[in-house]
């Protein structure tokens, strides 16, 4: 059976569900907005300083928003035990995993697109370095958060107090990725050093953990 066809079918189903309920999108958007506003009250830097700290602020905001989205990923599948219907079917588990990762990626990317202008306005940001490099950094960084986040969210649904378990697992493992995306963003904003190495590190992180997730997802999904 084609993984691609099933992935698209699952993605289409998830978008339809999200469109009907709008659970995740609304709460996530509002949450991201709150984070931006609160951060801008906590720090009132001049343009030079903000260039230096913006990389960290932006990614911490995105990290928190994506945790909200990731916690919702499996909630629908657990309700009414629909996940079991998937598990007993011959459909490959990785099609489900990929659909969830791609769905979350698009979700978080949308949030990033909508909140970035606010950051730019509040912090009067302007990149000194090559601004186009921010796109690969954002894409790779978001994938890094979302691929492991989707996996650990699937782990968390097997525990008591699911919602808190996800960040406890995701944050420590994500530290190298966070260092890389923050450093790359700061490098581009300040043009003090090259972002290239950090982009390579992010790419390595993405490749290693995407492979690990695909290899272990079926085991975690069927653990019972």
């Amino acid at each position: 059976m084609s993984v691609l066809r099933l992935t698209t079918a699952t993605l289409a189903k998830d978008f339809r569900l999200e469109w009907r309920s709008k659970d995740a999108l609304n709460s996530m958007l509002f949450f991201a907005l709150l984070v931006v506003v609160i951060f801008s009250f906590s720090f009132d830097p001049n343009a030079e300083e903000s260039r230096r700290i913006a990389g960290g602020l932006v990614w911490v905001a995105f990290l928190f928003s994506s945790v909200v989205a990731l916690n919702q990923t499996w909630a629908r599948e657990v309700r009414n035990q629909v996940l079991d219907a998937y598990r007993i079917s011959p459909a490959p588990s990785n099609a489900l995993f990929l659909a969830k990762v791609i769905g979350n990626f698009l979700f978080v990317a949308l949030i990033e697109l909508l909140t970035t202008p606010l950051f730019i306005a509040f912090y009067k940001l302007r990149a000194v370095g090559p601004a186009w490099q921010l796109f690969p950094v954002a894409a790779l960084g978001t994938w890094a958060l979302v691929v492991n986040g989707t996996f650990f969210a699937a782990v968390s649904i097997r525990t008591r107090s699911r919602e808190i378990m996800l960040p406890l697992l995701l944050f420590p493992i994500s530290i190298p990725a966070i260092i890389a995306m923050v450093s790359a963003t700061t490098a581009i904003l300040t043009a003090e050093y090259s972002a290239r190495f950090w982009i390579v590190l992010l790419l390595t992180y993405d490749v290693i953990f995407t492979v690990a997730c695909l290899l272990l997802f079926e085991t975690v999904l069927n653990a019972e």
Partner: peptide
Amino acid sequence: AVAVFAALDVPL
């Protein structure tokens, strides 16, 4: 599974 992820993370 989580232990494997942690170990993979160490070099990174």
